[in-house]
Design a binder for these strands. Structure first.
Lengths: 193, 193
DNA sequence: GACGAATTAGGACAATTGACCTAATCTTTG
DNA sequence: CAAAGATTAGGTCAATTGTCCTAATTCGTC
C-alpha cells in the first residue's frame, strides 16, 4: 500500500477514534511511522487530508451499498443489512459512536466547509435506502421512510455510545426490524383494499 | 450575575456552539469580557470549567423536568413536552445538534473522564421519561420505552443538524407523538383482554 | 479610615499546533 | 549510466494552547 493510502487509512481511523480537531499532523505521522515532512509532501493542509478521508469513506460506503445491492435477495433483506451494521460494528459504535454522525456533528460545530461533504455520506445511505423502499412499492413515502430509519440508527448509536450499552443496541435493532415488517405489512394490507 | 456565573454561562454556550476541544480559555475570557488572569482565578483548569458547565446543565435540566412534572396534566402530555423540545429548540439543533448528545460524543472520543458526568444528563431524561411511562402503567417496559424515545430524539437531532432540515424535524416529531399514542392504545387494549 | 480578603489585570511560561523549507535519498526513464 | 522527478527526513517558523505568577484594584468589616 502506498504511503499516501496508509496516511489516509490512519487518519481515517484517528479522526474516528479521537475526532478531527483533536487529531494533529504529528499524531497521524507518528501512527503511520513517517516524518512530518513526508506527511506534508502528500497533504499540504489539514483540510486536504480531511477531504481525502471523506472521499475514501464515500468510495468505501458506495462499494458496500453496491455489494448489498447484489447479494441481498430482496429490498427488505437489504434494508435489514443496513440495520445490522449496528450489530456488526457494535463494539466500535459503543466506543466511538457512528463514524458518519459524529464527524458530521463535529464539522457542523467547527463551521467547517467540509461539513456538506460529510453529510454526503448520509445522502449515500439515504438515497440507497430510499431506492429499497421504492422497490418495495412505497412510492413517494420512500424518502421519508429512509430518513426515518437513518435517524433511528443514529439515535441508537448515540445512546449506545453514551451508555456503552450492548443490550440497548440489540433490542433497538430488533425493534427496527419489527418496524420494517410492520411497514411492509401495512403496505400490503392497503394494497389489497 | 456573578463573574463566575457569567463564565459558566458563556462557556456553556461556546462548548455547545463550537465544541469543548475547539473552545479555548481565551475564547471564553474574551466573550465574557474579562482577562485570562481573572478567568484563572475562578477556574484553575479546563476540566474545572467543564465540570461547572455540566453541573449547571444538570441543575437546569432537573429544574425543567420538575417544572413539566407540575404543569403537565398527565404523563402522556409530559412526554409530549419532552418530544416538543425538538421543535422549541429547532433552530439551535439544526445549527449545533443536541447539546447533550454532541457533548457526550465528543467527550467519549476525547476519552475524557467527564464523559460519564455528561451521560448523567441523558440519565436525567431517561429516569424522568421512565417515570412517566410507569405512571401510564407500562411497568417493567417503562425504561425500555424511555430509552427508545430518547434515542429517537437523538437521531432526529443528528439528521436535522446534518441536513439542516426543518421539515424532517417536524414530521419526525409527529411520528413520535403518533408512536406514543399507539403505545398507549396498545396498552389499554391488552388491559381489556 | 484601615486592613485583610476577594477579585481583576496583564503578563510569562513551556509545549504544541499547522504550515513551510531545504537537503538527502530513492525511483523511473531515456 | 545519467538526468529528472518523486519521495522522505529533519528542522524552522509564528501562532496558539493550557497553566501559572505577580501586582494592582475593589470590597466588606471593624
Amino acid at each position: 500500500m502506498s504511503t499516501r493510502d496508509r496516511i489516509i487509512e490512519t487518519a481515517d481511523r484517528l479522526f474516528y477514534q479521537q475526532g478531527f480537531e483533536a487529531t494533529s499532523f504529528a499524531d497521524i505521522a507518528s501512527a503511520v511511522g513517517i516524518s512530518r515532512g513526508n506527511f506534508y509532501h502528500h497533504f499540504k493542509t489539514k483540510d486536504d487530508i480531511l477531504d481525502a478521508v471523506i472521499n475514501q469513506r464515500l468510495a468505501n460506503t458506495e462499494q458496500m451499498l453496491d455489494h448489498w445491492e447484489v447479494t441481498g435477495n430482496d429490498p427488505a433483506e437489504r434494508i435489514r443489512s443496513f440495520i445490522h451494521i449496528l450489530i456488526v460494528n457494535g463494539e466500535k459504535i459503543r466506543k466511538f459512536g457512528c463514524p458518519v454522525g459524529t464527524l458530521s456533528s463535529e464539522l457542523a460545530k467547527l463551521n467547517h466547509s467540509a461539513q456538506s461533504d460529510a453529510a454526503g455520506l448520509f445522502t449515500l445511505f439515504r438515497t440507497w435506502l430510499g431506492r429499497q423502499f421504492s422497490a418495495l412499492g412505497f412510492g413517494a413515502k420512500s424518502d421519508g421512510l429512509a430518513m426515518h430509519i437513518l435517524g433511528r440508527s443514529q439515535g441508537v448509536a448515540t445512546l449506545a455510545n453514551a451508555f456503552d450499552d450492548k443490550g440497548f443496541l440489540q433490542s433497538e435493532v430488533t425493534l427496527m426490524c419489527d418496524w420494517l415488517d410492520g411497514q411492509i405489512a401495512d403496505l400490503n394490507r392497503s394494497a389489497q383494499s
